[in-house]
Design a protein around this nucleic acid. Structure first.
Length: 425
RNA sequence: GUGCCUGUAGCUCAACGGCAGAGCGCUGCACUGUGGAUGCAGAGGUUGAGGGUUCGAAACCGUCCAGGCACCCCA
C-alpha cells in the first residue's frame, strides 16, 4: 500500500457513508434557507488576492490562504471565505438587484492551517446574508434562520445556544469606562479572551493590553452583566421581534460575544455547544461597509457563516444524525444462470420503472453468495428468477430480514417487493 | 507558525534491545436453488520514510512525512 499517493494534507475523502451525512446536512441547510425565501448563489473558487486585501484580516490573507501565481503571472488564491466574493457580486450589479437581497450559498473554502479535530484545510461553509436592509427585523430574521437550522438538525436549546450582543452597545459601554478609541480593537480581543484564560491570566493580559486596574475591574463587571442589553434600544427591539419567530429559547444575550472580525458594526452573534466541548458552531453579525470596500456604494447587511466540520462533530456527539442515511439499493435481483439472465434484467427494469433502487447481481453465482452480498449491502429484499419461476411466469420474492419468501406472478412483482420494504426507505 | 504525544496486517491493538503476533474483517471450502451462525483452511507486513547507534532495532538517537492534542487564529 505504500505506493498509494496520499491525500493532500487537511483534505477529506467522502466515502459513501460520510457523503450521506454531508448530503443530509446540506439538505437541511437548503431546506431552511429556501423556506425563508433565500436564493442560492455561488462564485468562483479562485479569486485575485487583491479581493481580500481590502477587507479580510491581514492574518487571513497572509498566513491562512492558499496563494499561488498562475501561469499568466496573476496572484491568485483559493477563496478562504465567501463574503468578499458576495460583496463583489453585489457591487457589480448594485443597481440591477432588487433590494433587499436574501442569498445563501454552500461551497468549498480553503485555509492553510494546521489540521486538527474540527479544523481542516479544505472545508465547506454555509453563508447566508440579508443585504440592503438595515432594520432590527433583518437582524432578527437572520438569527431566526440560524436557530431554525439548529432546530431542524435536531439540536435542542439545552444543547446549543446563540449568544447575541451589539457592537454599538459595547462601544458606548467602553466609552463610559474611558477606554480610548485607539484601544477599541484591542479591547475586543481582551473580551474575546475572557472565557479562554484563567482570571489571573486574563487580568495580566488585559493590563498588558493597556487597560488600567480600575478599567479591568469595571470591564469584568460589565462582562458579567447579563442585563446590559436593556440599555440598548436595538437589542430590546431585537428580542421583542425574535419572540415572534418562536425560536427565542435558542437565543440569549451575552456581553462577552464580540467577534474577532473588524467589519461588524452592530448586532453580533455566535452559536456554541452548551455541554461537551463548548465548541463554536457559527458566527455572524451586521456589517455596514461591505460593498463599499470593493468599490460600490455603502450597503448594510447582516449574515453569518458556518463551517461543516464543527457542526458535524456537534451533531455526531449529540447523536442526532440518523442511521441508514444514503440511498442504498432496496432490491437485489439474483442471477441464477446464463439462460435466465435476461429474465433477471427484465425484472429489474420493471422494478426500476416503479422507482425502486434495484441492483442486479453482476453474474450467475451460487444463491448463497448472492444473498451474502445483499446482506453486506444491507439490501432488504431479493428477487429470485430460477428456471422453475421463469417457466411458470413467476418470480420468488424474499425478505432478507425475516427470511420470508413468497412466489409472485410476474404482474405482481413490484407490489410484492414493496410489501417487504421498510416504509422509512 | 510554536510546543507535546503518536505512527506495527484492511481495522483495533500486542510483542523485556533477541524468531513480528492476536482479535475482528477479507478469500475459499463444508454448502451444485437460499445469506448472517459454526468449523476448517488461506491470503495479507520493507513495523510511516530514509539515516545513525548496536553483535543484533518495531523498540534507542536525530531528520523528514503523516495524524492527534494544546497554543495561535478562526469556521
Amino acid at each position: 500500500m505504500a505506493e498509494i499517493v496520499r491525500r493532500v494534507k487537511g483534505t477529506r475523502d467522502f466515502y459513501p457513508d460520510q457523503m450521506a451525512i454531508r448530503r443530509w446536512m446540506f439538505d437541511i441547510i437548503r431546506r431552511v434557507s429556501t423556506r425563508f425565501g433565500y436564493q442560492e448563489y455561488d462564485g468562483p473558487c479562485l479569486e485575485f488576492i487583491d479581493l481580500y486585501a481590502a477587507k479580510s484580516g491581514e492574518e487571513l490573507v497572509k498566513e491562512q490562504s492558499f496563494v499561488f501565481t498562475s501561469r499568466g503571472g496573476e496572484d491568485l488564491t483559493l477563496r478562504p471565505e465567501l463574503t468578499p466574493t458576495l460583496a463583489r457580486m453585489v457591487a457589480q450589479k448594485q443597481y440591477d438587484l432588487p433590494l433587499p437581497l436574501r442569498w445563501w450559498s454552500i461551497g468549498p473554502m480553503w485555509r492553510y492551517e494546521k489540521p486538527q479535530r474540527g479544523r481542516t484545510r479544505e472545508f465547506f461553509q454555509w453563508n447566508i446574508d440579508l443585504v440592503g436592509a438595515g432594520s432590527v427585523a433583518a437582524d432578527a430574521e437572520i438569527v431566526a434562520v440560524a436557530a431554525t437550522f439548529l432546530k431542524e438538525a435536531g439540536l435542542s436549546p439545552d444543547q446549543v445556544r446563540i449568544y447575541v450582543n451589539n457592537r454599538r452597545l459595547m462601544d458606548a459601554a467602553f466609552a463610559r469606562l474611558e477606554i480610548s478609541k485607539d484601544l477599541g480593537k484591542q479591547v475586543f480581543r481582551v473580551v474575546d479572551k475572557l472565557d479562554k484564560l484563567s482570571e489571573p491570566a486574563w487580568r495580566k493580559y488585559a493590563l498588558e493590553s493597556g487597560l488600567t486596574e480600575t478599567q479591568v475591574d469595571a470591564l469584568l463587571e460589565l462582562l458579567n452583566d447579563n442585563d446590559l442589553w436593556q440599555e440598548s434600544e436595538e437589542l430590546v427591539e431585537f428580542f421583542k421581534l425574535l419572540a415572534a419567530f418562536g425560536i427565542q429559547d435558542y437565543v440569549q444575550y451575552n456581553p462577552r460575544v464580540i467577534r474577532g472580525l473588524d467589519y461588524y458594526t452592530g448586532t453580533v452573534f455566535e452559536a456554541f455547544e452548551l455541554g461537551g466541548q463548548g465548541r463554536a458552531i457559527f458566527g455572524g453579525g451586521r456589517y455596514d461597509n461591505l460593498v463599499a470596500d470593493v468599490g460600490g456604494n455603502a450597503l448594510s447587511g447582516v449574515g453569518f457563516a458556518m463551517g461543516d466540520v464543527v457542526i458535524e462533530l456537534v451533531l455526531t456527539d449529540a447523536g442526532v444524525i440518523p442511521a441508514n442515511l444514503g440511498e442504498k439499493p432496496q432490491v437485489l435481483v439474483t442471477v441464477f444462470d446464463e439462460a435466465t439472465l435476461p429474465e433477471s434484467l427484465k425484472a429489474a427494469v420493471r422494478l426500476r420503472e416503479a422507482g425502486l433502487r434495484t441492483v442486479v447481481y453482476p453474474e450467475a453465482d451460487k444463491m448463497g453468495k448472492q444473498f451474502k452480498f445483499a446482506d453486506k449491502l444491507d439490501i432488504p429484499v431479493a428477487v429470485i428468477l430460477g428456471p422453475d419461476e421463469v417457466k411458470a411466469g413467476q418470480a420468488a420474492v424474499k425478505n432478507l430480514k425475516t427470511r420470508e419468501q413468497v412466489v409472485a406472478a410476474r404482474a405482481d412483482l413490484v407490489s410484492e417487493v414493496e410489501k417487504f420494504l421498510p416504509s422509512a426507505l
